[in-house]
Design a protein around this nucleic acid. Structure first.
Lengths: 249, 249
DNA sequence: TTCGTAAGTTGATCCAGATCAATGTGCGTA
DNA sequence: TACGCACATTGATCTGGATCAACTTACGAA
């Protein structure tokens, strides 16, 4: 099987590339009008419900895809069930890689997800013929590599508090809310358990660190899944990152 | 500065690409004779002594390079000095990435290292004009991404014992010694401290886990830097990896 | 041959985060 | 209106690996 044909999967009417929210960041970012129309003819949309598996590790896939909306996670699991998330796929991120025919990890929809899919064979041919796409694919891969290496530092050397602060700051940076020093109503797209899997912690530790930051007045929860950053400077201080990097505003 | 012009740096006479030990795995792997002669004309060799910095984080670099011989490490450091190695560069691995002009981490020679260097500007032009090189560069980047993600699982979820076993098994797999069930005289290219930085441990824990595996008869040291694997099955068992993956012979 | 130093081992103790356990909260469904 | 369930919080305890410390080993330089 390729991308799963499960219960909640829906094939959805296509949207024109011109009004696509990820038009300028996804694999098609560098394409001109002609190239775009080729992609437009090849693409199909699929939606997955929160919690649903998009792809299991080891499963051959016949589609590659861009995330249009929603959040998906990549995770690896040890024999005994310990799991580690190795990537978070946000809108414009790409699923699948040239020269590989089966998934190296589980891909799970953590929220409802919409994918813009291409059949793998034709897409690979197109990549070979279209430097704009090959080039963008390279950029996306290198960005992921940078992110993976930042995460290695976090997993290997940061404390629980630093991990949580880094995670919140990451979400704040990606959600482009613009309010210097204070960020309101940041939505957590993951459960405590998922966050723990992302950060190499347990869900209890995640919960305790959230509570600690709340008690200190650094953040506040309006609801379990929605928080505000009350003291951005303190939060950035708690990440353990160099003070210069990572300015949000 | 680009790649450092320090104390021990030497520019070394070039070797013909045809007799180059990494000819078929490095960035030039897919090149035909014509392409190779262009690279041959551009390249220069540089050597670095063990312990020497090849490139510091944030430093602009004017060269990219392939590792010809030796081992180098990529590492990231937190403000307070905690460091995490985020990659190990073995012969044929590539330093530098298209579209980036400064290092994202420190690159240190852990053994004596020989690099095959190209000036960044001309090399990038060549990449754009030579699909064989662009393609190979993409493959190398994706392989690194896979390795980084495997390491995230190790850093986030494995125990000290599993980390050490995984590390030994990794070295065994890359040194292509062929002796089913038993591997002799495996050389550790890193100090205990470097291994600790690679595995997200302290050097004491590394030492203790080596001792434990030795006492159990899984491995043996003929010298502090040279070990033999006496019981490969037990070692693989201790990695925590799926039993099917990771066969060496 | 000894001295100095970097690297490695081993022991004793400590503590951050895991684990085990109980309770709380919100929401959809009957 | 209450039942069931998934998710989250909080407390008590345990423990793997960090930290602190002493000692050993290898080796190159004087």
């Amino acid at each position: 099987m390729q991308i799963n044909m499960n219960t909640n999967l829906k094939t959805v009417p296509k949207v024109s590339c011109n009004s696509c929210p990820i038009r300028h960041r996804a694999v098609c970012a560098r394409c001109d009008a002609d190239e775009l129309s080729v992609l437009d003819g090849m693409k199909s949309y699929r939606s997955f419900a929160a919690g649903e598996a998009i792809l299991w590790r080891g499963e051959p896939f016949s589609f590659v895809a861009s995330v249009v909306t929603g959040v998906a996670s990549l995770s690896k699991t040890l024999e005994d069930g310990r799991t580690q998330m190795v990537g978070l796929l946000l809108p414009s991120d790409f699923i699948g890689r040239p020269g590989r025919h089966e998934a190296a990890f589980d891909v799970i929809a953590t929220t409802d997800v919409m994918l813009c899919c291409f059949e793998r064979g034709p897409f690979e041919t197109l990549v070979d013929e279209t430097p704009h796409i090959a080039h963008r694919l390279m950029e996306l891969a290198l960005d992921e590599l940078d992110a993976a290496r930042d995460w290695m530092l976090l997993l290997g050397r940061k404390t629980a508090r630093e991990k949580i602060a880094t995670f919140i700051e990451l979400l704040a940076r990606r959600s482009n809310t613009e309010t210097p020093g204070r960020i309101a109503d940041l939505r957590l797209p993951l459960t405590r358990d998922h966050i723990a899997n992302y950060l190499g912690l347990t869900l209890e530790t995640v919960s305790r660190q959230f509570s600690a930051l709340k008690k200190e007045g650094v953040i506040d929860f309006s609801d379990r899944r929605t928080l505000s950053i009350l003291d951005l400077a303190a939060l950035q201080d708690a990440t353990g990152n160099d003070s210069d990097g990572g300015m949000i505003t």
